[in-house]
Nucleic acid binder design. Structure first.
Lengths: 167, 167
DNA sequence: CTAAACTTTCAATACTTTCTGAAAGTTTAT
DNA sequence: ATAAACTTTCAGAAAGTATTGAAAGTTTAG
């Protein structure tokens, strides 16, 4: 396989992965492109490489910046804005974890806490509900703590511990 | 908050969470309903509780069974099929991890391995590409191992280790 | 200030996914 | 065998999401 094919395949695959990770296809593709590029790219570069419109490029670059995994670069003597991606895969993973925690875990935790306060009447349904909610809440809280630890962890410390777990 | 409100809110929230977890809203809602129900429910029960069509109910129950988190129950003396959900939250988490590994991690790993074999020419682009792919592949493999460990782990052992990690 | 260079917005459109409901298929009881 | 009870399928409708491209907005150079 040649470099250009390989590049296309990776961009494509990263786009698909994006869709299962709360990004969308285009966000994933732009991110892949920036990750493998040795130098920052402009909106036009991205439009051209991925054959997408200006509006699409602009919106998705913005969304990637909201996620905190892409940032602007000012190139000296250039008027255009250029963009680069976080390349340290660990920093990237932590950033994604941070965002997903905020977007997914926090809302459900809030609901579980609320709902855990609900009055129980004496029906079977109501008792089972209470029991399940308690377990879910407990699990969600543990997950939240674990995630927090991961987000704050230094790479080596984390891997050392994880590697121990995996023998 | 009363039980019936609380129930609706939980079902709603679990539906939203489903969407970020590779299920869809209805799958999430059906799953929530089955989780909190003290007894198995029929397709009709589900249709009624969630106000959805027969086709929709059928397809999404099926999808949940494919994921391995919902199963059929035959009630003695009843002709209808009833369904129940896995209620052990740990078993549930492991099952979801297993499916997502298969659906997300395996495909990207395959691509990374393929693409890692690509020929490098002497250009900057090509060298950077190779370097990034190597790092991604390494990370993906480590994640795969970690996930495998989790999937196979006994609850207490896993939590003991994790709790140590979290001090 | 003005014009060129560049970025952002957004209404219209294209595309994708989900849902419905009725028809077809299957199973069970008699 | 047949009819009632139940399940599955699937084409079309509805809802949701992504994309375009042109117009509006902003910044910079001179």
């Amino acid at each position: 396989m040649k470099y250009t094919e390989a590049k296309q395949e990776l961009i494509q695959a990263w786009g698909n992965l994006g869709s299962s990770w709360g990004l969308n296809k285009t966000m994933g593709q732009i991110h892949a492109l920036l990750m493998i590029s040795p130098k920052p790219l402009s909106t036009e570069d991205i439009m051209e490489e991925l054959s997408i419109s200006r509006g699409n490029a602009n919106m998705n670059i913005r969304a990637l910046m909201d996620w905190g995994i892409v940032s602007k670069v000012a190139l000296p003597g250039e008027r255009k804005e250029y963009f680069k991606s976080e390349k340290d895969i660990w920093a990237l993973a932590r950033q994604v974890a941070r965002e997903r925690r905020k977007r997914e875990l926090e809302p459900i935790l809030k609901v579980l806490k609320e709902v855990n306060e609900a009055q129980t009447d004496s029906s079977d349904e109501s008792k089972e509900f209470k029991k399940v909610v308690k377990e879910l809440k407990n699990f969600a809280e543990k997950s939240d703590n674990l995630l927090e630890t991961f987000i704050k962890a230094e790479e080596s410390w984390f891997w050392n511990t994880v590697l121990k777990m995996m023998k």
